[in-house]
Design a protein around this nucleic acid. Structure first.
Lengths: 216, 216, 216, 216
DNA sequence: CATGAATGAGGGTTCATTCAT
DNA sequence: TATGAATGAACCCTCATTCAT
């Protein structure tokens, strides 16, 4: 028992962030259940103990990963939280901005891949965290649609929540194709199509959307 | 017929089907990774060896389950494979029929729960099988939309495949809410809303859809 | 992953008993904390899984060992539970019988060694089990002395429980020397000396003990 | 004196003694095996490295603790080493003094608790050190009894060493009840009872002890 | 002297799989 | 066919110890 030498000392938080990056890549590649701590420490080139120095265990690093990226998403989603009315064109721009944001980094791709592939199959803890985010999106969307209905801009008989489910479903599917199936999808083009589709189907006065439609 | 005599002897296929039913319930409840062979054989009240007599292993029973239920879905989806034109109203009815079909049995609920929760996180084999089905749905839908575009019934500039992604996304999301999150969703009502939404957004001549709209 | 062949099947309980015997020897030799499951399975020439087939873990086999031997001791101690008065000589014989009983088998030696060396340093669970036995012995002894005091055979002012502590202390020390330190002790001779010593010190009428004294 | 300046700098020996005190308390509370270095450094509010600056390791601090307290006991036991004859009453007083000595400080209680609970289960090194002390006590006692036998004060046929085992056993048991089981024992009263009991059982001329008996 | 991040051997436990009966 | 004891690779996790700073 003569261990503990040959260090490559790093500032605590940087080391932790570095391990998280690598773990995320591993999880995204092999899946949470299939990936082992050994996979992570080998990829990170650290010792077992070093891992447990920074994280309580496999579930802990997963939780920290989810918290970290969800925090970023929550923050980014603030721009979507519209209290004052905005023109359709701006809305579409917001969606495109969000899309560019989440598709800009490989880490986010890994995170989305991980979450959409199997975060649902993990502890209720994880499931709740992730679904909490989607639920917030849905509620935000629902509230926005209802307000538009009151303003007479959206068909009054539409079930706002059902529509929101559809929108979130579209978003998830697109992200799934992009992050999990690595499809060659033109995200911006597809989002434009989807937004136009939904707007055209929802709006009380279709001419309202004309400016926002890409072609016609 | 040489069944039913001696120590718990059953016709091979019936026994196998019975084990699969139980395994599906277990997998749907605990998740594929979390569920163990022991869970299955205890629930099925058979011995370890008996399980391996009928299945090559854990992955094998999972594969057989996926194959079995996907086969049923493929068969059921035949009615959606429309070569000749159909009126909008009939399309909506087809969707509702499909919805009633998959939500009618507890086994299908288990299957959908299993597939949407984590089958994506398993072997590429499983992922491919399941996505193969969704891809077929998407291709079917895409072809149908393109045909409608040629007939001038659907806006010509729409990216048919992007729209299909949206539709499948909606379907998955609804099924996810129903089977995984056990939300109290009125499936038929929500599907009606979604179909109307999409049709209104897609059709070249909105008046075509009037008959199909639930309210107007 | 191709494991599970090459068996040496044994009847379940016999295998369990065999593992317990070996584990007891290992624990007695290396100590509970120092001994590892690997030590046990190597000595028993079984696989890791086989161990966990019969025991829930290290603490479980320890608990089963303690229960097993304490049960035997409780049973053997029944003869000491004297409701009707007995002559001194018989008492001494009872002690000698008990001594012969616990020193007759190597397993008991291992058990006593284990218990006296460190069972006190384990979980409160183990501590309580073992002390429960000693407490029963002490209570039995105390009750017996008090009865003798009422009959005027034992000095009335003696603190019966304090005397019982002394007796148990002597017994423990003797067993410790024999089982832990492997001293060359003539157990029977020493017990005879101790019993005489205590009796001579306790009895109201020293001549009562004459018959029981080994010499003089 | 160059103590007290700069970052938490203390005189080496004082710091070492302080750590030992804390370690003793931790060991006594959780047990040697269960307690970790982390427990100690946390309680002592020092860094890991600081611990290894003062001690070679876990075994080393344990050894130093045992040595330290055994030294004190050896020193205290000098008063028991009687070359010239003493009256019975004085002997009893010596025992009571010793009892008061070891039960006077919380540190001694911790030490006794540690030693009687599991020091026996550690390295032979520790076992030998502790037993070395008890052996010295036994030899001292044996010599004293033999001398008394030659002087005709103690029954000549008694096995002096056996009697000594009994006495040490009583002492250990009392200390065990007090330090480990935290029983509410009146140490002085119980020792008085024990001493009287043994003397009455040993003495050739029982009237010799009369003065020493608490009640008669 | 003091620090605490890093180490890795070692330990306990699980579970899919096998095969003698 | 059916059984279930046996297997062992693979995991997760702990903690005494080291040494660059």
């Amino acid at each position: 028992m003569k261990t503990g030498f040959r260090h490559k000392r790093k500032d605590g938080l940087r080391r932790q962030a570095q391990i998280m990056d690598i773990a995320l890549a591993i999880f995204a590649q092999k899946g949470y259940h299939t990936a082992s701590i050994d996979d992570i420490i080998n990829a990170a080139d650290i010792a077992k103990g070093t891992f447990y120095l920074h994280f309580e265990g496999k579930a802990d690093i997963m939780a920290k990963l989810i918290d970290h990226y969800l925090d970023m998403l929550y923050e980014a989603s603030i721009v979507l939280d519209i209290s004052q009315p905005r023109p359709i064109t701006e809305i579409k721009q917001l969606y495109l901005d969000m899309a560019r944001f989440v598709t800009s980094s490989i880490e986010f791709k890994h995170f989305i891949r991980l979450v959409l592939r199997e975060a649902m199959g993990l502890d209720p803890t994880f499931l709740n965290k992730v679904n909490g985010f989607f639920d917030k999106m849905i509620n935000m969307s629902t509230g926005y649609i209802r307000q538009a209905q009151q303003e007479g801009k959206v068909l009054p008989d539409l079930d706002a929540m059902a529509v929101s489910y559809c929108i979130i479903g579209c978003v998830k599917e697109l992200l799934f194709r992009w992050a999990v199936m690595e499809s060659e999808i033109d995200i911006e083009q597809t989002i434009t199509t989807a937004v136009d589709l939904f707007f055209r189907g929802m709006l009380a006065n279709p001419s309202d959307v004309e400016a926002g439609l890409s072609r016609s």
